[in-house]
Amino acid sequence: MNTATECLLRMVEEHHELEDYQGGVPRWCTGCGDNAILAAVQRLCRDENLRPEKTAFISGIGCSSRFPHYMRTYGFHGIHGRALPIAEGVKMSRPDLNVFVNTGDGDCCSIGAAHWIHALRYNMNMTMMLHDNQVYGLTKMQASPTSPKGTKTNTSPRGSYLDALNPLTVTLGVQNVSFVAQVVDWIPEVLYDVVKAAFHHKGFSFIRIVQRCPEWLPRMFEPVLHDTNRVLLLHHEQGLQLSDGLARTYRKQLEHDPADIHRAREIASGTDPIPVGILYRNPEVPCYEETRNAGQLQTAGHARTALETELDKYTVWPQQA
């Protein structure tokens, strides 16, 4: 596009306030970590001046997946576990849209596990937020794959039997992974920084958001909330940069280069302290929608001609018998 059109476009750009991105009033419980995620994402939209008609939030089923209703952008509240395939379809047909995926620990790691693995491999340019509250919340407290062993829920009254799945190590183990990060919902500054980094990353950005559920698991994170040494802040010049306030409050810090996947896997296996920051980032991985891009617009006429040419190779012409 030449300079004239660019100037003209910039002339009519509108600036949106944070409230402009607010859709419905959230029905989440008071104290739910989803509110923090909503606030951070709305801040991102305002700071990046994302055009609402060019932004789409795709979700599956769960408390997390109420998200698209509360954003005044395009949204798709899909069926259980299928947020990712729908998001991939959106991205393939409209690569110009900003696509975000909101999914929960049940929606992604349980019923949607297969789509999760392959979405990582496709590495399409979108941002996926895993709202991990370690329980099935919307259906009123059942154990999820990420519930720690021994969690007492309606389906596991004597405590769950299996060790929790670690979404980070699973993600880091898939080919083509290009961005993996973990945040906790009670440090809003880091949450915002990581969401912003994920948005700017060109490729599939996976953020696991450790989230509180004050209704069903009110005491799960209490010890961690009040002891700042239970959180390990990962920082690096290629990763998260810590502000002074953060660095003073959270003393446990580790410098980790996001390019080092082996170290990332090691760090990701640790649950105490909880590692927070960007674990892995690789901007060089190609994006599927670009690899498959035909490069040229085709008309229906061209497609028809091409098909006819191909089929003609097998036609039998009875006149030349």
Binding site: C32, G33, D185, W186, P188, E189
Partner: peptide
């Protein structure tokens, strides 16, 4: 304020 997680407890 910078550490607020927007959880609506106080505003409610």
């Amino acid at each position: 304020t910078p550490r607020c997680t927007t959880c609506n407890e106080c505003t409610q």
